[in-house]
């Protein structure tokens, strides 16, 4: 589920790759707001593991020790991807100008998607194993 959401999230970034979004028009503002909402929703999903509408006992089971370990690993991957992207962008500014919004967009997109894919992959592997 989470890798799928990450794929949808990344696919949605084509909007930014194909055309400049400068948040000057109402449509662009909506696009920016939608992306922020998406990113926040995915971060909330990663942090909670989902199951908001399920009972307390189920949520406790869904967030047991191995899940927390997988989440910590996903956070680490997200952190290093954010660092790598930031350093890369910083290096690229020697050759071209990159707008702050575009930079932040790239960093957050790559870090969130990487963390989600990592978490989803590890959870799936653990569910299927044995």
């Amino acid at each position: 589920m989470m890798p799928l959401l990450a794929a949808v999230f990344l696919t949605g970034q084509a909007v930014y790759a194909l055309g400049r979004v400068d948040a000057g028009s109402t449509i662009d503002r909506v696009k920016v707001a939608a992306w922020v909402a998406w990113a926040l929703a995915l971060l909330a999903l990663l942090a909670t593991g989902g199951g908001i509408f399920r009972g307390r006992e189920i949520r406790k089971l869904m967030d047991d020790e191995s899940t927390r370990a997988n989440r910590n690993q996903a956070y680490a991957v997200g952190f290093w991807l954010a660092m790598g992207t930031t350093i890369t962008i910083y290096g690229l500014t020697a050759f071209d100008t990159i707008a702050p919004r575009e930079s932040l967009h790239l960093i957050v997109t790559i870090a969130v998607a990487g963390a989600l894919v990592t978490f989803g992959y590890r959870e799936r592997r653990d569910h299927l194993g044995g």
Partner: peptide
């Protein structure tokens, strides 16, 4: 009081 997944991962 844990998930099957946790038992499975520990066991393996």
């Amino acid at each position: 009081g844990v998930s099957r997944k946790t038992i499975n991962t520990v066991e393996n």
